[in-house]
Simulated assay, not measured.
Amino acid sequence: MSIALRKPIELFRKTWMQIALSIILILPLAIGFSLLYKAWPLLNPDDLGKLLFGSVWSPSQGNFGLFPFISSSVFVAGVGLIIMIPVCLSSAIYITQFAPRWISRILRAAIDILAGMPSVIFGLWGVITIVPIVGNWAKQQGAQNPTGYSILAAGIVVSISVMPYVLNMLLELFESVTSELKETALSLGASHWQAIKDVFLKKLKPGIIASFTLGMSKSFGETIAVLMVVGNVVQIPARIFDAGYPLPALLANNYGEMMSIPMYDAALMLSALILLLIVVFFNYLSHKVIRHYQAKA
Score class of each variant (00 low, 15 high):
L5F: 15
K7H: 13
L11G: 13
K14N: 14
M17V: 11
M17D: 11
M17F: 12
A20F: 06
A20L: 12
L21K: 08
S22W: 15
L27T: 13
L27Q: 10
L29E: 00
A30Y: 09
L35A: 10
L35N: 02
W40K: 11
P41E: 08
P41S: 09
P41H: 06
L42M: 12
P45L: 05
L48G: 07
F53C: 04
G54Y: 09
V56M: 09
W57L: 07
S58F: 11
S60M: 11
N63H: 14
F64D: 10
G65K: 13
L66T: 07
F67R: 14
P68R: 08
S72N: 07
S73Q: 06
V76Q: 05
A77H: 07
G78H: 06
G78T: 15
G80N: 08
I82R: 00
I83F: 14
L89D: 04
S90D: 07
S91H: 06
S91M: 10
I93G: 06
Y94R: 11
I95D: 04
S104I: 06
A109G: 13
A109L: 13
A109R: 07
A110Y: 12
I113Q: 00
G116Y: 05
M117S: 09
P118W: 05
P118S: 01
S119W: 02
G123A: 04
G123N: 02
G126V: 00
P132I: 08
I133G: 01
Q141A: 10
G142C: 01
G142D: 02
Q144N: 11
P146I: 07
T147N: 08
Y149H: 00
I151D: 05
L152S: 00
A153P: 00
A153R: 05
A154L: 05
G155Q: 10
V157K: 09
I160V: 14
V166F: 05
L167H: 10
N168W: 01
M169Q: 14
L171G: 02
L171N: 00
L171Y: 01
E172S: 15
E175D: 13
E175L: 12
T178N: 15
T184P: 04
A190G: 03
H192V: 02
D198G: 10
L201M: 14
L201Q: 12
L201E: 14
K202E: 14
K203R: 15
P206K: 03
I209N: 00
I209Q: 01
A210D: 05
A210F: 05
T213G: 12
G215F: 02
S217A: 15
S217C: 03
S217T: 08
T223E: 12
G231L: 07
N232F: 13
Q235R: 13
Y245S: 00
P246L: 03
L247W: 02
P248E: 09
N253E: 10
N253W: 06
Y255P: 11
G256V: 03
E257F: 15
M258Y: 14
M259I: 08
I261W: 10
P262A: 05
Y264I: 06
A266V: 02
A266M: 03
A267T: 04
L273I: 01
I274D: 04
I278K: 09
F281L: 03
F281G: 00
S286V: 04
V289D: 10
V289W: 02
V289R: 04
Y293M: 05
A295P: 07
K296Q: 13
A297S: 13
